[in-house]
Design a protein around this nucleic acid. Structure first.
Lengths: 223, 223
DNA sequence: CGATTGATTTCGGAC
DNA sequence: GTCCGAAGTCAATCG
């Protein structure tokens, strides 16, 4: 529907949209999206499913109908429709969904197959090495048999370094593994993350996804 | 537009949508959104502005037209339209935008006005107390004149505890302030965050936004 | 312009 | 069902 409307949301926060012309989309699962003619993919206001909509005709001067969308938690989206410019309904059916490539899991799998790019003679102990606070992406051994924990990110930021630090602290309590060194590997490493990592003795490695993917002779960039 | 279509995205990742009926929305700024009849407000696929769309009529058997949406970075969204079920265009005009209430800045302001809810006889030194790695939300003093750094979140999670820990480490190097205690205040504190905080001697406080907002006699819940 | 941080984040996976 | 980490995160703020 395209309509002149004003909207109020009361739930996790309180928000108000003054009167303007907008697109109101209602999906098969009951969710409601209110879009303006700009911005990115995020609606100005919305209600996530599951939720139910109650529509009441209004006899007020300036309002045609009032939609009240509510979910189980009692959050409410109240849409005052002042003028309907277009309205339509379409049956879409179930969507087969999106197929992705290039995310962290792929990076992890690729690097696991090519741990030698981290250093000459390195070997993989295992992927998703378990610890009490969660699995380490890769556990490796260098040629001298020393353990190295590897944390892989698409974009390396401070919280990734913190995560690896917590793993290292835990792993180093294990006398069978200690001492365990750390490697922070990512397609891109933010300066502050690099500073923090190196301050803690963690080596930073920038990964080239296309090179890892494309060949058994990866032209990996090591900085 | 409502259309049977298939979509390919090549950019920061590679993604493919098999043929299905979907809603294609083009905004005034050129951005394109492809929605299915479910999920939440996030489209299945999209292109953010600024970007340009080139539409080419197709003489292929099963395709009416092919849309190529491209941005400055060279990321491409290619939409093969197989059948158009509905098409329409509407001028919406500029949107006055959303007015919000209830976010972290409000929490910080409210707690700053009512630091006594953290403890009898506490006082505020200042909001946004500056440190080398960024401002601490609140710096307070308890009745004995000891410094307390307060980190405020809407939802308290592990990274918030890490953030406060870094501040405390820095603040405790300042002989004029040390020793500095820590308080982690949030409307909701996740169990893992609470465990980590208390392990580090940081006190956790659950805030009641409505009570803080509603009265000078806040019925604050302290756990 | 990059870096940091919050978001009604949403989304998916594991336990 | 809950918790936790990733996201084509996006978007605002600040240096």
């Amino acid at each position: 529907m395209v309509a002149r409307c004003s909207v109020d949301y009361v739930g996790r926060l309180t928000a108000h949209l003054p009167e303007a012309t907008r697109v109101i989309m209602v999906k098969a699962d009951g969710s409601v999206l209110i879009h303006s003619d700009g911005g990115s993919y995020k609606p100005l206001n919305w209600m996530s499913p599951p939720c139910t909509t109650r529509i009441v005709s209004s006899d007020a001067e300036e309002t045609v109908e009032v939609w009240t969308v509510e979910n189980k938690a009692g959050e409410q989206l109240v849409i005052s429709v002042h003028e309907v410019l277009h309205s339509g309904e379409h049956e879409l059916g179930v969507d087969p969904g999106l197929v992705k490539d290039g995310v962290e899991a792929h990076l992890q799998r690729l690097l696991a197959m090519h741990v030698h790019v981290l250093g000459e003679g390195w070997s993989l102990v295992r992927r998703e090495y378990p610890t009490a606070i969660g699995p380490v992406d890769l556990l490796c051994r260098d040629p001298y048999g020393r353990s190295v924990a590897v944390e892989i990110k698409r974009r390396g930021e401070i919280d990734g370094v913190e995560q690896l630090t917590r793993y290292l602290e835990l792993l180093n309590r294990d006398p069978l593994l200690a001492p365990v060194a750390g490697v922070f590997a990512a397609q891109e490493i933010k300066p502050q993350a690099r500073v923090l990592a190196e301050d803690r003795g963690i080596r930073c490695v920038v990964l080239d996804y296309e090179a890892l993917k494309g060949s058994d002779d990866p032209g990996l960039r090591l900085f």
